[in-house]
Amino acid sequence: MSGASLCASDLGWGPRRGPAILRDVSFVLPAGKTLGVVGANGAGKSTLLRLLYRFYRPTAGTVQIDGRDLWRMPPREAARRVAAVLQEQPTDFALTVSEIAGLGRLPHRQGLSSAGFRDTQIVEAALHRLDLAALARRRFGTLSGGERQRVMVARALVQEPRVLILDEPTNHLDIRHQLEVLEMLRGLDVTTVVSLHDLNLAFDLCDAVLVLVRGEMIALGPPETALDAVTVARAFSVSAWRERLLPSGRSRFTYTLPASDRT
């Protein structure tokens, strides 16, 4: 896998006969870099991601991958370029872990051809990478929430995308598997867009951060500049302090309710 450049230009979306939920969002993400999307619940994070993985067609603006409009690509080609891992996971699949992961190979097959040797190798490698090899024959619906999340990440990797979209990828995961998934994401040579609630995680993982408030972009840039105390306070309605930890040099946030909200 290798990353592709991702460009959003004046993106907007809203339901028919309804107000816009997302307005005038623009960014350029170079190949192989990671963009974090942060904001309070209802800020428009999931809507933005749905535009990037072609679930919603923009009502304004464009999404381009390596200079090509995502909506001008045939669906199969778009699926070879963009993969998504969502928060919502189906629980009623009557398929095994290996079969679910194998669905990621469908955009690469010709017609009704069955899985080949290389497909099998790619699936096995992804399951091993995400500590799922021992569960390969388990039914998906019998897994815990964290296990299902890792299976969906494996399916996305099997797809061999050039752009990977993740909506809260550590949701449902225990601490060890959170660390494993994050370490894996750091090692991928793909372009990644990830929505996050944890600002400390955004500092550790992302090359750039986009901050949304009620569907509008209020900051975009490296975490050190996009996530200043004023922006965080505006985005989350909290008082925030950022401190640099020694000897690692990493930044960490501390939050409190504004004095006016305390009882």
Rank of each mutant, 00 (worst) to 15 (best):
residue 248 S to R: 09
residue 15 P to G: 07
residue 161 P to G: 03
residue 58 P to I: 07
residue 131 D to V: 13
residue 124 E to G: 11
residue 206 C to P: 02
residue 259 A to I: 10
residue 19 P to N: 12
residue 142 T to F: 10
residue 191 T to P: 03
residue 248 S to E: 14
residue 202 A to R: 03
residue 195 S to M: 04
residue 21 I to L: 15
residue 13 W to C: 00
residue 42 G to S: 10
residue 44 G to H: 02
residue 16 R to G: 11
residue 158 V to F: 02
residue 250 R to Q: 13
residue 190 V to P: 01
residue 177 H to G: 06
residue 90 P to I: 04
residue 55 F to N: 14
residue 229 A to F: 05
residue 2 S to R: 13
residue 45 K to W: 05
residue 221 G to V: 04
residue 49 L to K: 00
residue 30 P to D: 12
residue 89 Q to R: 12
residue 204 D to H: 13
residue 229 A to Q: 11
residue 207 D to N: 06
residue 145 G to A: 07
residue 260 S to W: 11
residue 113 S to V: 12
residue 184 M to W: 12
residue 21 I to K: 14
residue 116 G to A: 08
residue 243 E to V: 15
residue 112 L to T: 15
residue 127 L to Q: 01
residue 12 G to V: 07
residue 130 L to S: 00
residue 94 A to F: 11
residue 16 R to W: 08
residue 22 L to Y: 02
residue 193 V to F: 05
residue 14 G to W: 01
residue 80 R to D: 07
residue 263 T to L: 14
residue 2 S to I: 15
residue 215 G to Y: 00
residue 73 M to Y: 02
residue 45 K to T: 08
residue 83 A to G: 02
residue 5 S to E: 13
residue 152 M to R: 08
residue 132 L to K: 02
residue 110 Q to D: 13
residue 71 W to Y: 12
residue 25 V to A: 07
residue 66 D to C: 07
residue 217 M to I: 09
residue 223 P to R: 02
residue 95 L to N: 07
residue 217 M to K: 10
residue 95 L to T: 06
residue 109 R to D: 10
residue 11 L to Y: 05
residue 72 R to T: 10
residue 252 R to K: 15
residue 211 V to P: 00
residue 215 G to F: 00
